[in-house]
Design a protein around this nucleic acid. Sequence first.
DNA 1: CTAGAACCTCACGTTGACGTCAGAGGCAAG
DNA 2: CTTGCCTCTGACGTCAACGTGAGGTTCTAG
Lengths: 120, 120
Amino acid sequence: MRIGDLATRTRVSVRALRYYEEQGLLASTRSDSGQRLYGNAAVDRVRLIQQLYGAGLSSKTIAELLPCVDAQVSTPESRQRLAAERDRITAQIAELTITRDRLDDIIAVTSGPNPQCDYV
Amino acid sequence: MRIGDLATRTRVSVRALRYYEEQGLLASTRSDSGQRLYGNAAVDRVRLIQQLYGAGLSSKTIAELLPCVDAQVSTPESRQRLAAERDRITAQIAELTITRDRLDDIIAVTSGPNPQCDYV
DNA sequence: CTAGAACCTCACGTTGACGTCAGAGGCAAG
DNA sequence: CTTGCCTCTGACGTCAACGTGAGGTTCTAG
């Protein structure tokens, strides 16, 4: 498929896809005229990339980790990187949970003691 | 206390504190010579700001929500905003959990089938 | 009283993940 | 064969949350 199709399927902009290639995250073959061509696997690949971006990883970090996924092998270093990122995400989840609870508190407090609830 | 003290206590840079003031997130009184002065409450305030930044809120959003915290009151609109942000954070936690699990899978797969575990 | 830290206000620089525009070529339909 | 959409490669623009430096004032320790 061509880049526009991949963009549609993944809901990621054409520009972003070219950017991913530029960063070494997403490979493509080229047609005779130079247009990018992708296989079906590219859809999942893009989704994985998006997911990792969403978790706060940088292009550089993702570029370092994707080869492990492709080769299904990790060196001790990359395994450590992977584990470090996982731990970072775990910590991030914990922080977010605290923040959400605090937001809940704020909502509760600012909603004021509701008279309809004070029926004692 | 002065801005340097607040920076030390919160581990936030002096520049960032001035930026928060610029964005209307953090108030200060001024000494005769124009230096910023803060009360002890500023420490918690800065921590709350940091926490909200960490959860992905923008200065603008935080600026809209902090008055609710101060006044302990929320309008229907701001209550909706607060709830929307909370839900966004909840969704973010869910996404991060998925990503972390996926990372765990990757770690497991790339670590290869460990012979010591295949003792059946 | 003086050195040196801490503070002030501009105001430009940085970084990442793209957006956007320009100018030019490619491809399917009628 | 031309109309119109898709794609290409640069290359500059954007936005947020600060970093950083200039040039000048203020506070504090000795």
